[in-house]
């Protein structure tokens, strides 16, 4: 057992494989178990001893001050930003209309589907929020996320889609992927289902590019990413009750729906060579599904 893994585990930076070996080690004897959890308790106590942090860093602000200061900074900087924006508006010959931002919050216990102005879907987890402009500007589509959501982004090679989080930015052209990034959390992650995504640090430096069924786990303590294997379709189904189908034909979609809902849909399609990505919530009604499928494929679907 490589015991330096424990530290990595305490910091939340281990991979599933490493966690597996730690668990096996813990379960192999009572002494091991005691050792691991004692070390965790001590690590946690040292880490979270508020007096120590304040006392050890004279001249540095203690946590609570820092917190207050940063809030204050936000006020100051937003006041400055407002002033600057005002000046720009005042001096510009043709003042541009400021973006109207809409924030969607999901206070319920269920997954909430939000449609963005470009018809992309965001499946929002409870207690999560996503902010987007009322209309996307040309050449860029950007939204902000705090919490966890599954994105199903409409392809547009002219206009990259960016998700900003407290920790990093995710940029795509058209894909489906999951982002978990809750303010104050110890780790965050991006899991890719189809297509490709690039993840940038908030300072703009590029960090990771994912291929489907990979997950980049971000540790807020180290600021680094670790790429692990994942099963994104399964994740979406379990966590969102979201059925995800990639690169499938209409008849494959219909077969899946027929089996899931116990119905007999059929389509009079001209050809079945076209491929689609099709995601839907398990709770969708059959009528809604038919409507969406008809719009997506342009084929008539009969019950």
């Amino acid at each position: 057992m490589d015991e330096s893994l424990f530290l990595k585990y305490f910091k939340g930076a281990t991979t599933a494989e490493e966690e597996k070996s730690i668990l096996q080690w813990i379960e192999s004897s009572d002494d091991n178990r005691k050792e691991f959890y004692d070390l965790k308790a001590i690590w946690n106590a040292v880490q979270n001893d508020p007096e120590r942090k304040a006392a050890a860093a004279p001249g540095k602000m203690s946590w609570s001050h820092k917190h207050r200061a940063s809030r204050w900074m936000v006020w100051v900087s937003s006041a400055a930003a407002c002033l600057l924006a005002g000046l720009v508006l005042f001096f510009a010959l043709r003042p541009s209309v400021p973006e109207n931002l809409i924030t969607y919050v999901n206070p319920s216990k269920e997954v909430l589907e939000v449609k963005l102005p470009d018809n992309s879907s965001v499946f929002l987890k409870p207690d999560s929020r996503v902010t987007c402009p009322e209309e996307f500007r040309k050449k860029s589509r950007s939204v902000t996320l705090d919490g966890e959501a599954f994105f199903d982004v409409v392809h547009d090679s002219e206009s990259p889609f960016t998700v900003s989080t407290p920790f990093f930015k995710v940029r795509v052209l058209g894909t489906s992927f999951n982002v978990m990034a809750t303010k104050g959390a110890n780790f965050a992650s991006v899991m890719l289902q189809s297509g490709s995504v690039k993840i940038f640090q908030n300072d703009g430096s590029e960090s990771v590019t994912l291929v489907p069924d990979e997950e980049a786990v971000y540790s807020t303590s180290t600021g680094g990413f670790q790429v692990v294997k994942a099963n994104a379709s399964y994740y979406a189904l379990v966590n969102y009750s979201l059925v995800t189908m990639n690169n499938v034909t209409l008849s494959e979609i219909i077969n899946k729906i027929n089996v899931m809902y116990g119905v007999h849909l059929s389509a009079d399609m001209a050809d079945d060579n076209r491929h689609f990505n099709f995601n839907f919530l398990k709770s969708s009604s059959i009528d809604d599904l038919i409507k969406i499928l008809e719009i997506l494929t342009g084929d008539k679907i009969t019950y």
């Binding site: 585990y9 939340g12 281990t14 991979t15 599933a16 966690e19 597996k20 730690i22 668990l23 813990i26 178990r33 005691k34 959890y37 965790k40 308790a41 966890e148 978990m180 780790f187 786990v217």
Partner: peptide
Amino acid sequence: KYRSWYQQRIDEIAFDVY
């Protein structure tokens, strides 16, 4: 949100131990 099933298990054991 657990990173993995193993992590979940490790965290669950913590409740017995602590």
